[in-house]
Nucleic acid binder design. Structure first.
Length: 256
DNA sequence: ATGCCGGGTCCTACCCGA
């Protein structure tokens, strides 16, 4: 079973990239982030033609997540349980397929909106850990994957690319990410590649891609029984070198 | 310690991302 996640930075700009990549990679499930459109504008028909069913949680201009799956699935949540009911940001979708729960997430960046913006990011991470704890307690095999906007370790950002005060690397962000691991989740890419850079994002500016100044912020976390089935996990760097790329690349995980 | 690029929208100057 192949599961992938990709922050596409606008599905309208990346509709054909995603179609080509689906044909090439043949994942069973692809999670998308930053679709940047409302659900009705998501190009589901394009992917239906390739054998995928689509479900999108969107809003105008910002954020937005989606699931594409070859197997039938049911949608369990369109918002992260535990957030205030008036929270209008489209950042979470949770589905069940093939006996497992899959959550696609787009975590707040946390650098805008001052301390309130950063506080929103930390609260979001806390609600996510609570959701993970609930699923762990229920013994459900599950995956949480997407753009976490956190560089978990010192190898996860190129030296000099971010100040230590950046919300992606602040200790408060990293501690809350680490809690997910302490609670029993496995960082799939780090389980396969324990050391060194395994970037998933390169800024459009200042030749970041050409100089390989990247970040590892897109993650796939596995519950214990799924971690035992892990056979491969890696970003698909080639996508970053294509014409008009997203600034993120897909991260692909294979389970036996 | 950033917004040089690239996306969005109140269509065009500004907001936002990492």
């Amino acid at each position: 079973m192949k599961i992938a996640t990709w922050n596409v930075n606008s599905i309208r700009q990346r509709e054909k990239h995603v179609a080509r990549w689906l044909e090439q990679c043949q994942p069973d499930v692809l999670l998308l982030q930053e679709i940047k459109c409302e659900a009705h504008a998501f190009p589901g028909l394009t992917y239906h033609g390739l054998g995928y069913t689509a479900e999108a949680v969107g809003q105008k201009a910002y954020n937005g997540v989606a699931v594409l799956s070859r197997k039938p699935f049911t949608v369990h949540h369109r918002t992260l349980p535990g957030l205030p009911p008036d929270d209008a940001q489209s950042r979470y979708i949770e589905v069940e397929t093939d006996g497992m729960v899959i959550a696609g997430i787009y975590l707040p960046n946390g650098n805008s909106g001052g301390e309130a913006g950063f506080g929103y990011k930390l609260a979001w991470l806390e609600r996510l850990a609570e959701r993970a704890d609930t699923l762990l307690a229920s013994d459900t095999p599950f995956i949480m994957a997407g753009d976490f906007n956190v560089c978990p370790g010192d190898d996860d950002w190129a030296p000099g690319t971010l100040p230590p005060t950046d919300a992606l690397v602040r200790p408060e962000s990293r501690a809350r990410f680490r809690r997910l691991l302490w609670d029993g989740m496995t960082d799939a890419v780090r389980a396969v590649h324990p050391h060194g850079p395994v970037y998933t994002f390169w800024d459009y500016q200042a030749g970041a891609w050409q100089r390989d100044l990247g970040l590892r912020i897109d993650h796939v976390l596995l519950s214990p029984t799924l971690a035992e089935r892990l056979v491969a996990a890696a970003p698909d760097r080639e996508e970053r070198g294509k014409p008009q790329p997203s600034d993120h690349v897909p991260v692909v995980v294979e389970l036996h």
